[in-house]
Design a protein around this nucleic acid. Structure first.
Lengths: 193, 193
DNA sequence: GTAAACATGTAACAAGTTACATGATTGT
DNA sequence: ACAATCATGTAACTTGTTACATGTTTAC
């Protein structure tokens, strides 16, 4: 139910149309919560029906500007302070690590290397962005900066982890290890588990 | 499509029943990819129909033991080495941070403090677990240890980030800042955006 | 005039969650 | 005999993705 709260959160900082919100998702919120256009318009309809937002005004091209209601604000506050964040922990990047024993150590190292490069690129991107934004002392800015710091720290930790993992892999050096058995199996030589 | 590959990855390390796989998800894989019982049995049916796995034997209580096929192994390998991990980046914990300007600075600090405590507990839990597991030099063990290191490093980064954020918040000290305007709005004093 | 941007909506599908439903085997 | 564990399956619902469909206004 977080898309609902993302929309309420955005509208709490001022009224906006579905199109406006979509832009907000695309350029600032996408790093922590992404939404598609079709999902967004659907959710606006539901929030309206539930009385958490209202159409404040209608503009050209069928534009509908939504505003948060008192009930919406109460719901947002409840979610912010009383609902425990769900920790999903679903990462297909990490899932692959679990099954890397199915490929050769050289291929596994290649995979980890790719992840390191990706994390490095993302880290560089965030640092560049951080330098561009004129941070001030308004609440919006302070919390935005805190959220961005999370990205910076976690991409840095990713880079360091990848490097550590590659080294660990080299140290373990699995020449006749588990993966070799898998090669044999692929060659058609079945064995009992 | 990652549940499919999680199942293939588990079966690549030996045949198992739906029930066995469910236990694997619950006790080791749940930290990187969770699946419900109903989802799992559904996926096994689809994988069977697609020829990526087969029923190798049937046991008591209607137990069906599945084994990966050569096509399944090829698909797993393809996914491991040629499919780019999807980076979803969806965190309702971080989403809340974006909207913390809707509550008082003291409440915001309370939220960050809660996150720090949660990260600390998770970190402690992982370190205890790491000490219990008899790590050896088999591929399965090496890659398992690498995956666990990710959890350890990221929970540590989480703790440090929360502490940093709380300090930053105190330094910024938003006494008459943005959040106050929101209080006024809640009191019914509407203003133009 | 025409391309870009503004603006909303729906349909079909895939993935994930919760709850219900049923029954067999093993250990005490 | 009874509880725990083993074992599978289905139905209803929510969330998220991709693609289709349509029309308006503004700037050049």
């Amino acid at each position: 139910m977080s898309l609902r709260h993302a929309v309420l959160g955005l509208l709490a900082n001022g009224p906006a149309s579905g199109y406006d919100l979509l832009k907000s998702f695309e350029l600032s919120l996408s790093n922590v919560w992404s939404a598609t256009q079709s999902q967004l318009y659907g959710e606006l309809g539901k929030l309206d029906a539930a009385g958490l937002i209202v159409v404040a005004s209608e503009g050209p091209r069928g534009r509908k500007e939504y505003a948060i209601t008192d009930e919406g604000r109460a719901e947002l506050r409840h979610w912010l302070l009383e609902v425990e964040p769900t920790r999903v922990r679903r990462s297909d990047m990490l899932l692959r690590v679990f099954f890397l024993n199915q490929v050769t150590p050289a291929e596994a190292e290649g995979y980890l290397d790719g992840q390191e490069k990706h994390a490095q690129a993302y880290h560089d991107h965030l640092l560049a962005l951080e330098g561009q934004i004129p941070w001030d002392d308004t609440a919006l800015s302070v919390y935005g900066r805190i959220a961005m710091e999370w990205g910076i720290r976690f991409s840095r930790a990713s880079i360091e982890w990848s490097a550590w993992a590659k080294e660990r892999l080299r140290d373990a050096a699995l020449p006749e290890g588990e993966w070799a058995k898998e090669r044999l199996r692929e060659a058609g030589l079945e064995e009992k588990s």
